[in-house]
Design a protein around this nucleic acid. Structure first.
Length: 418
DNA sequence: CTCGGCATCCTAT
DNA sequence: CTAACGATAGGATGCCGAG
């Protein structure tokens, strides 16, 4: 078996580009050409920047910062809201084009895919020409730009797609690693976040090249052996992980909510836990899963986060059992301090294999899982009120305002989803 | 010493 | 005006106690 050929395709400023395409179609300005951002929920004080145009970036605006701060940096800033239904459509259309080029495609998030192009040389003899073709087709057919990274493995393809933007194809083959990747700061290496970068700093390592050329034994002193090997491999462009073209079963499900008014009593906490148990269990049941472990998570006003979990005697998918367990858990561990966040999770998922007896069922389940992965990636970026199935109940009389508002939002946003 | 259970940390979208 | 900052998932790590 020879070298692999992997593409990583990444939509440039996905949400901003997608909204720009939409507004352009209705005669609006092209948001990509002016200082502009997408803000999560424009009506919330907690609204953060979820995507920015390149002109906005020049004002020092960064993703994740409060919209109010971004506007202080750039008074002319145009702030647009999100349109999740439209984003899902754009994502599907984008992936449909990508999927034409190989059966082995991994959806990595709403706006990223990996393509395994290995062994496609008979159909696509010129990889670079194919990369350009995909990029240009997406632009001409859908109206937004992508970056394509071309390499021999996923890591290098992903690093390459992150090079200069927008609308570019970059390669990162082994003989290019030294020139193109080693000068970059370690923090640019995929999976090297703030904490790892700080540890490496203590060894005077600040570039990927320095990391690549530090002996594993030395890295292990600050990273531990496992991570040392991982980062050493990555810095040297080594990655054997396959492009996973099947959607895997979830290993856990969770829901958490930051509230506007601090939670100070169990009654309100429990009401939220019930709604969360309902949502989480509905998703788990839809996947034919049962959990053997239930956990709660909470965060106080100092941003200190704690969790408490418990194994069950037997696995369950019953909302009421999960809720009662969560209720016990929070009662056991919460000291009474005001909370800004409460969450519920289920893990240790068992699945029956019965649906395998029906090809039809199996196929529909696969389709549903694929849909879920798209929806979940939106939730991941924008919070769970962005997208939700119409299963949420509100049995409460006194839920705090913020939470009620979110429930309301959920129902509005669910319309037209199905 | 290893493993399960648990809490926490880290990273990504 | 400091800091502000959401939700979800998966994996790693470190500790403790049992076998």
């Amino acid at each position: 078996m020879g070298d692999r050929l992997i593409f990583h395709i990444d939509v440039n400023s996905a949400f901003l580009s997608w909204t720009a395409v939409q507004q352009l179609a209705s005669g609006g300005p092209d948001l990509r050409e002016i200082p502009s951002i997408i803000g999560g929920d424009p009506s919330s004080r907690r609204s953060i920047v979820t995507a920015k145009s390149i002109p906005a970036k020049k004002y020092g605006i960064v993703t994740g910062e409060p919209v109010a701060l971004a506007m202080r940096k750039c008074p002319n800033l145009v702030v647009a809201g999100s349109n999740f239904d439209w984003y899902v459509k754009c994502s599907r259309a984008f992936k449909a084009i990508c999927q034409e080029y190989t059966p082995t495609m991994q959806s990595f998030s709403i706006d990223e895919v990996f393509l395994d192009m290995s062994g496609m040389h008979l159909i696509y003899p010129d990889p670079l020409a194919t990369a350009y073709e995909i990029k240009d087709r997406i632009y001409s057919e859908l109206g937004f730009t992508v970056n394509v990274g071309v390499a021999n493995n996923k890591l290098c393809a992903k690093m390459a797609s992150d090079f200069e933007k927008p609308n570019k194809v970059h390669t990162l083959f082994p003989d290019e690693i030294e020139k193109k990747m080693w000068p970059l700061p370690v923090g640019d290496l995929f999976t090297c976040g703030k904490s790892s970068a700080a540890r490496l700093k203590s060894l005077n390592i600040s570039t990927i090249g320095q990391l690549a050329n530090t002996p594993v034994e030395q890295l292990a002193m600050v990273l531990g052996e496992r991570s040392a090997i991982h980062f050493h491999n990555y810095a040297n462009g080594i990655d054997n992980s396959p492009v996973m073209d099947e959607v895997e079963d979830a290993k856990g499900y969770s829901a958490e909510n930051t509230v506007e008014d601090d939670l100070v009593d169990l009654e309100n906490i429990n009401r939220i836990l019930l709604a969360q148990a309902d949502v989480v269990c509905a998703r788990m049941r839809a996947d034919k899963g049962k959990c053997r472990c239930v956990g709660v998570t909470y965060r106080n006003l100092d941003f200190v986060t704690r969790s408490h979990q418990k194994k069950l005697k037997e696995s369950t998918d019953v909302t009421d059992i999960v809720y009662k367990t969560a209720k016990d858990l929070i009662k056991e561990c919460w000291s009474g301090e005001p909370l800004r966040l409460i969450g519920l999770s289920v893990t240790d998922i068992d699945r029956d294999g019965f649906e395998q007896f029906s090809l039809f069922e199996d196929e529909s389940r696969e389709k549903r899982k694929a849909l879920d992965s798209t929806l979940d990636s939106i939730r991941g970026k924008y919070g769970n009120w962005a997208v939700q199935r119409a299963s949420t109940i509100d049995t409460s009389k006194n839920v705090n305002r913020k939470f009620k508002a979110e429930q309301e939002n959920n129902r509005i946003n669910s319309k037209g989803q199905k």
